[in-house]
């Protein structure tokens, strides 16, 4: 949609909070822990389907004509609002749900111990990525969306319901963020600052890959992950700063990211 969306961080936090509180409540009422994975997914679905259309229909759709930097600021304003909404609903104390994480136990590779839950995280991530690629490349809606992004005017003239496409896209994008948050929730303590931290990190990922590129984002995520782990392992002081160093380097040498599209002739 050519939107750099700061509220994505909010959806990540919303997903985490919803997952933590709903799963926690159900477990307390005696739900078998093995069902909690489905509940995580369901919670993410629930918040994004409620909140995303509200934001898109209620506010964002009136703003698409504005400059992309202004839209970014609007999403920043929404981000500030949503952060306080989260605090109003869930308070400022951390939430924990360790059950889905602890349930599976762990396995050993060489001398390192890995929790099985991390495999589920990887699985969910791959499923989301593959699903998204399939949707964009092979379904009617996905192809229409690519057309809308390329040229809104022409798409509208060809009879594509651009408004609906925007709504679907925004909701779906937010859903992915909420899923990310929901499945991360069991591994961390869920606090209000969650969204603030994740959003810059995801900017780094997207910039490294190239704005709007799906394989780029996947590659960016893997790079950020590897660089971060390497830093933690070899040079713990550099953990945070290397990520942004990589982001700056990529921008410096490939201003439009690793997977980027050339600009058209101007005069």
């Amino acid at each position: 949609m050519k939107i750099v969306n700061v509220t994505h961080g909010s959806f990540y936090a919303l997903g985490a909070y919803a997952a933590a509180s709903i799963t926690g409540a159900l477990l307390a009422r005696g739900m078998p822990p093995s069902l909690s994975y489905a509940v995580l997914l369901g919670s993410a679905l629930l918040v994004s389907v409620i909140v995303a259309p509200l934001i898109e229909r209620g506010i964002l759709r009136f703003m698409y004509a504005k400059d992309e930097v202004v839209i970014l600021l609007i999403t920043y304003a929404l981000f500030l609002i949503l952060e306080d909404v989260i605090k109003m609903i869930w308070g400022v104390n951390p939430y924990f749900i360790a059950e889905p994480y602890g349930l599976l136990g762990s396995f050993d590779v060489l001398d390192l111990t890995y929790p099985y839950y991390n495999l589920i995280l990887v699985g969910v991530a791959i499923a989301c990525g593959a699903g998204l690629a399939w949707m964009l490349g092979s379904t009617r809606t996905g192809k229409l969306l690519v057309a809308v992004i390329h040229d809104t005017e022409v798409s509208r003239a060809m009879g594509i319901n651009v408004d609906r496409m925007y709504l679907y896209t925004f909701t779906f994008g937010s859903l992915l963020a909420a899923i990310g948050g929901a499945f991360t929730a069991p591994t961390v303590s869920v606090v209000p600052a969650l969204g603030v931290e994740v959003i810059v990190l995801s900017f780094a990922v997207v910039v490294i890959g190239g704005l709007g590129s799906l394989p780029g984002a996947a590659l960016g995520a893997v790079m950020v992950g590897l660089v971060r782990s390497a830093a933690i392992h070899y040079l713990p002081q550099a953990e945070l700063f290397v990520i942004y160093l990589v982001m700056a380097m990529v921008l410096a040498f490939r201003p439009r990211g690793l997977f980027s599209i050339a600009e058209a002739r101007k005069i």
């Binding site: 992309e68 910039v207 700063f241 160093l245 439009r256």
Partner: peptide
């Protein structure tokens, strides 16, 4: 050399580099 969103994101990156450095110093 940068414009629009890329200018914004690159300046964000450099400021976060400093943050990352200071937090660990």
């Amino acid at each position: 050399r940068y414009r629009s969103i890329f200018f914004g994101l690159l300046s964000l990156a450099v400021s976060m580099i400093l943050y990352g450095l200071l937090v660990k110093t």
